[in-house]
Design a protein around this nucleic acid. Structure first.
Length: 692
DNA sequence: TTAAGCACATACTTCAGGTG
DNA sequence: CACCTGAAGTATGTGCTTAA
């Protein structure tokens, strides 16, 4: 303090200390009046100077991104729309609520080691490969026996880890740390990218809305201009463009429409668009919600029922991603622990808490049994054949939730092979759940990977999916999650106060610099913060949650053989929906002469999805997405139908829009010590803002 | 020449008080 | 009570001066 004051009095140019304090006060939200007071005291520089610094830092960040783009090294351009709603305190004719629709953008360096770069950036070779998917067969997107085997091993490892990590009292087990290490080492890998710090360079916000065909063309031109590249230079190499499904779809539509334009820049042929993994995780979470939320009245093993037991009060019609993900995770772990209990012959929580496995092999054998009896499609079909809808639903849920965990870990370890395997299953499941856009996006990626990419470009695209902030193994995150974090910083953390919320202000001072400011903030927070105590409190709450769910399952005698339970499909009014009786049920129709019987709401979305794909949709997909050298890009609309059996009167009845919000810190910020490659909170989080 | 600061301008929020 | 009004308060921008 006094140092700062003295240096201020001595010499106006020696302001390193007051400048840093000023910057801190500013980004931590000190009011301008207080800042002025402190500035007058000589403790920090003036508000004006801080503003200038923000501008300079922003410019430097953009310049740094630009230099990477111009260096000729391989990079990916990640972008995502950022929308701000500006509420005016008093609306006047000249002062109305308004929206800012802008696009945030970052440049990510792609590690070139071991990649054939000339092959990857060759536009002509890329164009020649278009349309090769015409040769594809349905089996090309179906999971193979090998995929099934990989998933079996992966899920058994996951179950083993859950038992080791979350069984009450397990923290006192002898050799637990080694066992946890062992299970991680045994987790099947495919082709993980070696851990290395990713160079991410924020490129700032653009005043263009990439959510439309016109907007995305405008945006690409603005990006080129900010990079100070000539059109020929920009369009002369393959450019990796990373966004969500909507971005990719818009880009493809725009390219189709502009096929006859004169220059390559206008024809957009240089762009290699690739959908990003955080958005797949969002969709998968929504898929699990649509398939398994159900209703608490009909089905005690529905997520809806578990949500009630856990006292999660969030509105199921306006859920945020972290809350939904946390509910799924809590429910999954509780089920696994309860099955463990039943296999061990316990009926009380205290017995489970007193149990200690004799060896690692013990736990692994338990996990294998849980997988075989309570997590496979075959097990669910068996439950179905016993007319036990509760058990079938339970098993489908455990399977789907485990697959999500596998995906999450695959992202955390940057293993594109594992990611692509899960996409094969999700390609079916998204179809079954009615999320057709993302079902097609899975197929798009699988077919492009198999038929239309050179080895070099394939490697480049795979690397563009992941970002590693610390250069540590298991700490990768999805590239679009990285950008969502930037969006959060722009929108919530470093947003200007008062009348400063304009697109111009954000572009010049409030976007490109946020990562630099976060780095500073982070070290300060780590220096002063005490995260341990809060974590401990969360862990205790987590154990209580497990106990509530397990005691309920025990009370209802689930996971103890099969009993007849029927979960009926309901119509929009919540009445039990009836459908014409199936011919195969000959016996019943003899006894009762009812022409209509209630339908079960419990279905395997992977099976129903596969049916949809085989009934013409796969051929439609090929016809409507394959480039034909003679005719060009195909034109036509997809015609999708919804499966009403999964409807339960919530927002998820409309599966084609994403209902999960992800604009809060709990949704996008990740814990440094956990696998949270796709965000959504730490292992003990509830997904509520109080977690922070 | 340039970083830094000052005074004033502009745009908006907040708050107290008034009116029908 | 909804709505309006003006004054005070806050945040940022503009243009100029000053010191090194």
């Amino acid at each position: 303090m006094s140092l700062s004051m003295m240096s201020f009095a001595r010499n106006r140019a020696t302001n390193a200390l007051p400048l840093l304090s000023g910057l801190f006060f500013k980004i931590e939200g000190t009011s301008s009046r207080a800042s002025q007071l402190l500035s007058n005291l000589g403790l920090c520089v003036s508000v004006k100077t801080v503003e200038r610094v923000k501008e300079v830092v922003s410019k430097n960040c953009v310049e740094s991104a630009r230099s990477l783009m111009l260096s000729g090294d391989m990079f990916a351009t990640v972008f995502d729309n950022i929308n701000l709603y500006l509420r005016k305190y008093q609306q006047r004719l000249t002062n109305q609520h308004s929206m800012i629709h802008a696009t945030n953008c970052a440049i990510i360096r792609i590690d070139e080691a071991g990649v054939n770069i000339p092959e990857a950036i060759d536009v002509k070779a890329k164009l020649d490969r278009r349309g090769k998917r015409m040769r594809a067969k349905f089996t090309d997107i179906l999971p193979t026996k090998e995929d099934d085997e990989h998933l079996r091993k992966a899920c058994i490892s996951l179950i083993t880890e859950f038992i080791l990590r979350y069984t009450p009292g397990s923290e006192k087990w002898e050799g637990r740390a080694e066992m946890l290490k062992k299970v991680r080492e045994g987790m099947p890998q495919d082709r993980p990218i070696p851990a290395k710090k990713t160079e991410t360079r924020p490129f700032g916000v653009f005043d263009a809305n990439e959510g439309s065909k016109k907007g995305i063309i405008e945006l690409l031109d603005l990006i080129r201009l900010r990079a100070t590249m000539e059109p020929e230079e920009w369009a002369g190499k393959v450019r990796v463009l990373s966004g969500d499904w909507l971005t990719s779809a818009n880009f493809r539509h725009a390219r189709r429409d502009r096929r006859d334009d004169v220059t390559p820049m206008e024809r957009l042929e240089y762009g290699e668009e690739v959908s990003q993994l955080f958005h797949f995780a969002l969709q998968a979470t929504q898929m699990i919600m649509r398939t398994h939320f159900g209703t608490a009245i009909d089905d005690p093993l529905s997520l809806s029922s578990h949500k009630g037991l856990l006292g999660r009060v969030w509105d199921h019609n306006a859920p945020n991603y972290a809350a939904a993900k946390s509910l799924i995770r809590h429910s999954l772990i509780a089920r696994i622990l309860h099955i463990t209990m039943t296999i061990l012959g316990f009926s009380r929580w205290s017995e489970l808490a007193a149990w200690t496995p004799t060896s690692y092999k013990d736990v692994e054998e338990l996990a294998e049994e849980i997988w075989a009896k309570w997590a496979t499609s075959e097990a669910a079909e068996h439950a179905k054949s016993q007319n036990d809808d509760w058990a079938a639903h339970d098993i489908y849920f455990i399977r789907d939730a485990l697959f999500f965990c596998e995906f999450e870990q695959a992202v955390s370890y940057a293993d594109p092979g594992r990611v692509l395997r899960i996409m094969k299953y999700w390609c079916l499941a998204f179809r079954g759940a009615g999320q057709h856009n993302y079902a097609r996006e899975c197929a798009e990626i699988l077919l492009r990977w198999k038929f239309e990419l050179s080895d070099g470009l394939r490697k480049v695209l795979e690397r563009s999916w992941f970002v590693n902030r610390w250069g540590k193994d298991g700490q990768w995150i999805a590239a679009d999650l990285y950008l969502e974090q930037m969006n959060l910083l722009v929108k919530r953390i470093f947003i200007a106060q008062g009348n400063g919320v304009t697109i111009e202000y954000i572009m010049s001072k409030g976007s490109a610099c946020v990562e630099a400011f976060r780095a500073v903030s982070h070290s300060v927070a780590n220096f002063f913060g005490d995260a341990d105590r809060r974590r401990r409190a969360k862990e205790i709450q987590f154990q209580e949650d497990m106990r509530v769910l397990i005691e309920d399952m025990e009370k209802k005698r689930v996971h103890r053989g099969f009993k007849k339970h029927f979960v009926p499909m309901r119509n929009k009014n919540g009445e039990i929906a009836k459908a014409p009786q199936a011919i195969t049920k000959g016996k019943k129709s003899k006894k009762k002469k009812l022409p209509y019987v209630p339908k079960s709401a419990i279905v395997d979305v992977m099976v129903t999805g596969a049916e949809v794909w085989t009934h013409g949709k796969f051929n439609d997909f090929k016809r409507l997405t394959s480039y034909d050298p003679a005719v060009g890009y195909p034109i036509g609309e997809f015609n999708d139908v919804q499966d009403p059996r999964l409807d339960n009167g919530t927002v998820f009845d409309d599966p084609n829009t994403l209902h999960l919000t992800f604009d809060s810190p709990v949704d996008v910020l990740v814990d440094d010590l956990e696998d949270s490659g796709v965000g959504g909170g730490g292992e003990f989080d509830t997904g509520l803002e109080t977690d922070i």
